[in-house]
Design a protein around this nucleic acid. Structure first.
Lengths: 193, 193
DNA sequence: GTCTATATACCGATAGAC
DNA sequence: GTCTATCGGTATATAGAC
C-alpha cells in the first residue's frame, strides 16, 4: 500500500500487498497442497508479514477457498452435436491449457477433509458441469446423469494426476479421449429401457 | 513382542500395545483424515505414550500407510457374465458392507499430497481392479480400459463421499447402479471400430 | 487505521534419563 | 523398553507502535 496509485490499465504491474499474497498463495497451494503450504511461506514469498496474511484474509483456510474459487476459469463448450459431446468433454478436461484447472481441482480434493472445501467442490462441480449439462440432456434422470458425468470426469482427472506419467497418463491422449468419451456418452445419450 | 504368546485362536482379546495403536489409528484416520488426526490423540486413545508411537512405527506417515494398506479387504467378484459386469461392479462399490473400504480410499485420496500415499493408491487400484479386470476383458487396449474403469469407480466413490447425502447420494442406489453400470459397461465391452 | 511484534497453543519428532 | 523433557515447527490471536 501507500504507493498504490491505481494505474488500472497496466496488466503487469508487480503485485503488492494483498494481491501479492493471493498470487503467491495460489501458486504454492497448487504446487504443494494445503498442508504443505504454510502461511509463513506465503507471506515470505509475497514480502509481507505472516500476521498480516491472517489479518487480511481471516485464516489460512479462508485464503485457500478465496484463491481456489475457480471463478474466471474457462468453461467447457457444451454446444454442438450431442452424440459426440462425450469425446469433446474428455478432450476439454485433458487439454494442456486446462492444466491449472486440473491442479486447482486436485488441490481442492486433497484438502477435502474440511467440509467447507467439500462444499466449494460441490459448488464448482455444479456450476462448471451439472447446471449446464442438465439443460442439454434429453431423457429421464437428466440431473442425476449430469452428476454422474461429472463424477466420471472427476475420476479421470484424479487418475491422470495420481498416475504420474505412468499407466493412464502414458497412454496416448487420443485413445483415452475415444474410450472414455464413449463411457461419458453412455450417460449423455438418453437411457433405453 | 516379549509377552506375545501367539494365542491365535482368540479373536476378541482386548488389544494392547502396538495393536491398540494400529486399531485406534485406523479408526481415527478414517473418521478425521490424516491431518485431522494427531499422534498424540492416537496414543491417548490407545493408552500409550505418544513417543512410543513414533518409536514403534517410525513416523505418522509410516503408521498411516501401514494401517491403510487395504490388505485383507474384500475384493470384487469378477466372475459371471461379462455383459452385466458393469452393474455388478457399481453395486459392489456402493454396497453398505464396503463402507470401510470407501472411507479408507477417501482418507488415502485426501492424503495424496504425499507421493508415498499416491504410490500406495496406485498399488491398491492395480491389485484391487486393474490386474484382475485385464484378464477378463476382451478386445484391444484391455489394460488401458481397465485403468479407465478403475478411474470411473474412483470418481463415483469420490462424488458419493463429497455429496454428503445430497445430489448423487440422495438418488436411489438402484438407479445409480443401472446408469453408472451402463457407463462402466461401455469400457467393459470390446470397443467397436 | 495499518502494520509490527509478540504470545498462545498446538503439532511431529528426538535425545536421553530410568 | 519405556517415558520425561524438549526442540523446532505450525496456525492463529492480540497488544501496542506508528
Amino acid at each position: 500500500m501507500g504507493d498504490d496509485r491505481r494505474v488500472e490499465t497496466t496488466e503487469t504491474a508487480p503485485p503488492t500487498g494483498r494481491e501479492a499474497v493471493e498470487r503467491a498463495a495460489l501458486g504454492m497451494f497448487e504446487e504443494q497442497g494445503y498442508a504443505g503450504t504454510s502461511v509463513r511461506a506465503i507471506a515470505g514469498a509475497a514480502g509481507v508479514d505472516p500476521a498480516l496474511v491472517i489479518r487480511w484474509f481471516g485464516s489460512k483456510e479462508d485464503l485457500f477457498l478465496r484463491v481456489l474459487s475457480l471463478t474466471e476459469k474457462p468453461v467447457p463448450d457444451l454446444t454442438g452435436p450431442l452424440d459426440t459431446l462425450g469425446e469433446r468433454l474428455v478432450a476439454f478436461a485433458l487439454a494442456p491449457g486446462q492444466r491449472d484447472v486440473r491442479r486447482d481441482l486436485t488441490a481442492l480434493v486433497r484438502a477435502s477433509d474440511s467440509s467447507s472445501v467439500r462444499s466449494r467442490l460441490r459448488q464448482i462441480t455444479r456450476t462448471l458441469f451439472v447446471e449446464r449439462l442438465v439443460e442439454r440432456l434429453d431423457g429421464p434422470n437428466a440431473e442425476l446423469r449430469s452428476h454422474l458425468i461429472a463424477s466420471q470426469l472427476g475420476g479421470l482427472l484424479q487418475s491422470w494426476d495420481v498416475a504420474e506419467d505412468q499407466n493412464v497418463a502414458a497412454a496416448s491422449r487420443d485413445r483415452i479421449i475415444t474410450l472414455y468419451g464413449a463411457a461419458l456418452q453412455a450417460l449423455i445419450d438418453p437411457p433405453v429401457e
